[in-house]
Design a protein around this nucleic acid. Structure first.
Length: 425
RNA sequence: GUGAGUGUAGCUCAGUUGGAUAGAGCACUGGGUUGUGGCCCCAGUGGUCGAGGGUUCGAGUCCCUUCACUCACCCCA
């Protein structure tokens, strides 16, 4: 094969798709139960939307965007995340005139030009949820509760919820400056990476594994001493609402966000089974995003779930795969015609039926029926057909009965109903 | 962008200090049963040994270059 998918772009094959569908269906059900509506947004936007919304100095904008100039000379970018686009749509269609509060969710692919590794790809899927127009910390909690509830519904009871507050425009920069000043005085102790982090993102130095760096930060100023009273109050309420909802969380004062628009509440759900990229979902409040892209002061909060990471934690289970209800094995010309007629009819009735397309021996048709895990096989031979009969074999019990072809639809409908009663499919 | 590891059949992998037609298991196709699946037995299909160059009488094996994949760093979902 000469032409292969490009780096970091993956095919999701049929044997895996059940897990994806399950995750998406569950998200729709849960989110709509919380009053969210789906929104679908374009995959391409004007580059400006992201450079302004996410922030010029962020890694995403500086080096990770798929950006190109189209035939009319506009700079366009494949969306690296959904929030900015959803906010743009909200402004563009003035959804706030209908209701200042908007609860929206979106499922689809995002694109970032990074070196792929476990849990990180150039095209990756996110399930995104956003609430616009509410400053009250109740929604911070509501959104987190919805996320955790969703994760429980797909089967994860014990993922770790980490929360932090990033402060806002008034208190966060102060802390940043103070930390920078402190660390600059210790810069001789810092490793090469941290020398650079000192300029770009000093908080990251907390995460450095180099021993001398760890020593350097032992007496560093703490975020909590700099958070202003308004932000502190907001955060305290978020924590209280989470507690009254019975949610366990871990305070992670080192948690940072890579996107400029985040303020106040930030949260992540992590799994230690994921490898280095361990965040299944992440999000937070962004009360400045709208000003950046549209000039209106509209608060927002939301999260994104990484679908690849989520799906990789789901058990590789056959229950997601749908098997044929019936395989029709035909022997000879007339029976083949009859099989074709029957299968077409069954498809119209919503019964999953398969047949042999290559005129193979019964043995090989049986093998295929078995391989496809068909529940029943209908065997059509010349003699039986002349009598208007066919053999219906239950592949699990091996019991076989002769039924008349006229009754096939009613007999099968009952059998399929039984099958559906037993499990999802 | 940086670092490390790995490239032999569709998949998982053997392949000796360089030696003759490159192997196994699984999968696939057919047969053993003129019309009955899984287990078993037999046979068959399938490889430019990632690509290019070099050393050598001889390269899957050694050297160089290059590409791809994987993991990690950076950063994030």
């Amino acid at each position: 094969m000469e032409i292969k998918a490009i780096r970091g772009f993956n095919d999701i094959l049929p044997d895996e798709i059940g897990k994806w569908q399950f995750a998406e269906e569950t998200a729709r059900e849960v989110f709509e139960g919380f009053g969210f509506s789906e929104i679908r947004i374009p995959i391409l936007e004007r580059t400006e939307l992201f450079s302004r919304g996410i922030g010029e100095a962020t890694d995403i904008v500086e080096k990770e965007m798929y950006t190109f100039v189209d035939r009319s000379g506009n700079s366009l970018t494949l969306r690296p995340e959904a929030t900015a686009s959803i906010a743009r749509a909200y402004l563009e269609h003035q959804l706030y005139t209908f209701d200042p509060v908007a609860k929206l969710y979106c499922i689809g692919p995002m694109f970032r030009y990074e070196r792929p590794q476990k849990g990180r790809y150039r095209q990756f899927y996110q399930i995104d949820a956003e609430v616009f127009g509410v400053e009250n910390p109740v929604v911070d909690a509501e959104v987190i509760i919805m996320l955790i509830h969703f994760l429980k519904r797909v089967g994860f009871e014990n993922l770790e919820l980490q929360i932090n507050t990033l402060g806002d425009q008034t208190c966060w920069p102060k802390y940043r400056e103070e930390l920078k000043r402190f660390l600059t005085s210790k810069s001789f102790q810092l490793c090469e990476d941290c020398q650079r982090r000192l300029q770009t993102n000093p908080l990251r130095i907390f995460d450095c594994k180099v021993e001398t760096c760890q020593e350097a930060i032992t007496n560093a100023p703490k975020v909590s001493d700099f958070i202003c009273s308004e932000c502190q109050k907001h955060f305290d309420l978020v924590k209280k609402y989470l507690e009254t909802a019975g949610l366990q969380y871990i305070l992670n004062p080192r948690m940072v966000r890579g996107l400029d628009y985040y303020t106040r509440t930030a949260f992540e759900v992590v799994s230690y089974q994921l490898g280095s990229q361990n965040a299944v979902a992440g999000g937070g409040r962004y009360d400045n995003l709208f000003q950046e892209i549209g000039g209106l002061e509209i608060p927002g909060i939301g999260f994104a779930i990484g679908m690849e990471r989520l799906v990789s934690l789901l058990p590789r289970d056959k229950e997601f795969i749908s098997y044929p209800h019936l395989f029709v094995a035909a022997l000879g010309q007339e029976p083949s015609k009859e099989a074709y007629r029957i299968v077409n009819q069954l498809h119209l009735e919503g019964i999953r039926a398969e047949l042999d397309y290559e005129g193979k021996s019964l043995k090989s048709q049986m093998r295929r029926a078995d391989k496809l895990k068909a529940r029943y096989v209908l065997i059509l031979g010349e003699d039986e057909l002349k009598r208007g009969k066919a053999a219906l074999r239950n592949m699990e019990t091996k019991s076989q009965e002769e039924i008349s072809i006229n009754n096939i639809f009613t007999v099968l409908k009952d059998k399929v109903k039984e099958l559906k009663g037993k499990n999802r499919h």
